[in-house]
């Protein structure tokens, strides 16, 4: 489990690097979507690893609400860039 979590963290570095080096806003948004879903799955993994129900609830809430917020942000940015 330790090794799996480290592998997940290393995979998480790929969208982070992509968000840093690409200047296009939609490429960054894509990387953000990737990071958001990956971090919430990692929170779920840690909650199972530690057998902590409270962290698991937080992970599920972040997973569902974070995605909703991402859609809101995507529409806002579309309005901004279209002017």
């Amino acid at each position: 489990m330790n090794l799996l979590l480290i592998a997940m963290t290393l995979i998480l570095l790929i969208p982070l690097y992509e968000a840093w080096q690409d200047d296009d806003i939609w490429q960054k948004m894509l990387a953000f979507a990737s990071v958001a879903s990956k971090t919430s799955i990692m929170i779920l993994c840690i909650s199972v690893l530690r057998d902590d129900w409270m962290i698991g609830v937080v992970g599920v809430i972040i997973l569902s609400v974070g995605n909703a917020g991402f859609m809101l942000l995507a529409h806002l940015i579309k309005r901004i860039t279209l002017q």
Binding site: P15, L16, A19, W20, I25, K28, M29, A31, F32, V35, A36, T39, S40, I62, G66, F70, L73
Partner: peptide, 8 residues
Amino acid sequence: VIRGILGA
């Protein structure tokens, strides 16, 4: 967008 990543 990077602020969103930082938040996650």
